[in-house]
Design a protein around this nucleic acid. Structure first.
Lengths: 195, 195
DNA sequence: ATAACCATACGGGACGCCTCGTTTGATTAA
DNA sequence: TTAATCAAACGAGGCGTCCCGTATGGTTAT
């Protein structure tokens, strides 16, 4: 049943693969998303453009993988309180969005995703879905403890948290201050409290 | 002191000006931000590109004015309760962001603004500042009534509301459901309640 | 075990198409 | 006379595709 699908011909070069991802992340961090062209990435990575197009369909997919793939999303926080869990979750979100390459890439990346229905559904699956799962777990624990109001839609909370962090990082342009995560988690945490 | 700045030479054509703005809004709504080029706008408006570049410095400024200038932001709501005022404010925000041209333009526009420091500061002044003023008024009234916690930063609330609506409209891609405004206002309203 | 073969990847370069923002030229309106 | 208008063309640069000659690994035949 497995059908190993034996690959024929020359295998792809792992070093080229990694060099492309590294060059992409560096270029985005240095020059921004718009100024990052496939040609420039190829030149910096020391590859041909074909070697890039053979792996990724375009700039959006390449940058997304280069910037957000190495995300280590650790275990779901379980501090015992809704506010604590939420703060940990938001802190991770802020940290992820504030990394130089990520902050530089996010607005342009989001625009490309929004303009392309196919990409849009893929980002919801790859990026938002795990975040939603983690948030839902924290939320359900809080509901069982009687801390949270089960009537609040999880998707709304997710849009609110992600949107707030993105909007702040994207429009303010400065690395998010250290108090942002705590304040945001406090605001939203109080908003979903049971009463 | 006024220096009427007597115009010399042929005055600019008001009809061309309006035709350009109209063509821009239509093109953005139909084809999206990325597919809207200055050349296409000029062709549709029946003008030369020159006539556009004489008035606007580029696509971002043109689209921003075409899509968001006609925003009529009515009086600041005063329903007597924090939740009521907030709901009215968010409903206006949702309506504004959900207009076909606005929804199509927002992600790309935001990306251009984020990539350009000059444009970024201008959008904060023209677009966000009025919203912040209106929100601050609603918020201060609620603080005086004892409904809201004065320790909550207004900017955080603004980022949260705008970010949530943008994230929802931009990534879901569907017109925001009718319940979104009420749910979001409820969530954030409870979050800033005095306790 | 060795060698021939084959499918695919590689770096490099050129291509046609598109958009951008600028410039030029002839015309038109105040 | 002055400046705005439309039209056309420009150079620069990105995109995505294609082709080249070469490199590389697995498969097959000896």
């Amino acid at each position: 049943m497995t059908l190993p699908e034996a690959p024929r011909g020359r295998p792809r070069d792992t070093r080229a693969h990694q060099a492309i991802l590294t060059a992409t992340a560096e270029l985005v961090a240095e020059a921004g998303y718009a100024a990052t062209s496939i040609g420039a990435v190829a030149a910096r990575a020391g590859t041909g453009k074909d070697t890039i197009y053979r792996r990724w369909s375009g700039k959006a997919e390449l940058v997304y993988e280069a910037v957000f793939t190495e995300t280590e999303s650790g275990p779901v926080p379980d501090t015992g309180s809704l506010t604590g869990d939420l703060t940990a979750l938001v802190e991770a979100l802020v940290q992820e969005f504030s990394a130089p390459a990520a902050a530089a890439a996010l607005p342009g990346l989001l625009a490309d995703f929004a303009a392309n229905p196919g990409l849009r559904s893929r980002i919801r699956g790859h990026f938002l879905a795990p975040a939603r799962t983690r948030l839902a777990e924290v939320f359900e624990r809080a509901v069982r403890r009687g801390e949270a109001d089960s009537a609040v839609p999880v998707d709304l909370v997710l849009d609110t948290l992600a949107g707030a962090v993105f909007f702040h990082v994207g429009l303010v342009g400065e690395p998010a201050g250290p108090r942002l995560a705590g304040q945001l988690a406090g605001l939203v945490g109080r908003g979903i409290e049971a009463r």
